[in-house]
């Protein structure tokens, strides 16, 4: 199997949520002497991007997304193992603290974002739902996060996203983080209005936005 075929197989493994194919892609890469990190970047990650596009356009759905993300995580774990075994170091792309804001118990959309961010190689701290601004800031400070992402499905809870912006400014730590807002009633206009740095339309868009932030920060 040549390099191109290995990458294609890795992409296929994600699109079809097939763990066996993912392992076969990695086995073939090992035999052909293709570095695993290349399979991750040119195969699995590409597959996840393509899958994210399909999810955004309503061609695949939540259960498939979760299964594909599991295949991705499994492949990523094996690649990490291989890197560590050969004396290498694992470098995460960056850290994101994610939460559904106080007063809102909707979890699924935020969960999708977390799953997709993890699959994209970002270290995610999922604080769950109904989370107070204080707790979001405390965790972000503790883990030295790069990104704070908040979600809400309820119009009346959107004010919590504004509260987060105000509180970060009040504490003089606003510039330490890039804030991303999302959720069904949230729009780019709202993000601009409250002074959030970015708006994420859905899980896939969230990954693109976070990648953009981290690429700008770390290159």
């Amino acid at each position: 199997m040549d390099e191109k075929e290995v990458y294609s197989l890795a992409i296929e493994a994600i699109l079809e949520a097939d763990a066996d194919k993912a392992n076969k892609a990695l086995d073939s890469a090992k035999t052909a002497g293709i570095p695993f990190i290349n399979v991750l970047n040119n195969g699995f990650s590409k597959g996840m991007e393509e899958f994210g596009e399909m999810f955004s356009s309503g061609e695949v759905f939540l259960p498939q997304l979760i299964v594909s993300a599991k295949v991705m995580s499994g492949a990523a774990a094996r690649i990490e193992e291989d890197i560590l075994a050969s004396g290498g170091k694992i470098q995460k792309k960056g850290k994101a603290v994610i939460a559904t804001v106080a007063g809102d118990v909707h979890d699924i959309g935020k969960g999708i974002v977390c799953t997709m961010l993890r699959a994209a190689g970002i270290e995610v701290y999922d604080l769950g739902r109904d989370v107070q601004v204080d707790a979001i800031i405390a965790k972000s400070e503790e883990v030295e996060a790069d990104i704070i992402g908040t979600s809400t499905l309820l119009t009346h809870c959107m004010a919590e996203q504004l509260k987060l912006e105000d509180e970060l400014k009040k504490r003089g730590i606003r510039d330490k983080y890039r804030t991303v807002v999302g959720g069904a009633p949230v729009t780019r206009k709202w993000a601009n209005k409250i002074g959030a740095d970015y708006y994420g339309n859905d899980g896939n868009d969230g990954v693109k936005v976070c990648n953009e932030i981290l690429n700008k920060k770390y290159g």
Binding site: E59, V60, F61, L62, P63, Q64
Partner: peptide, 16 residues
């Protein structure tokens, strides 16, 4: 919404 994702009616996928 595709909470199941595989269901069909009259040969057409319902989700989406």
């Amino acid at each position: 919404l595709g909470m199941h994702g595989k269901l069909t009616y009259d040969g057409k996928r319902i989700a989406g």
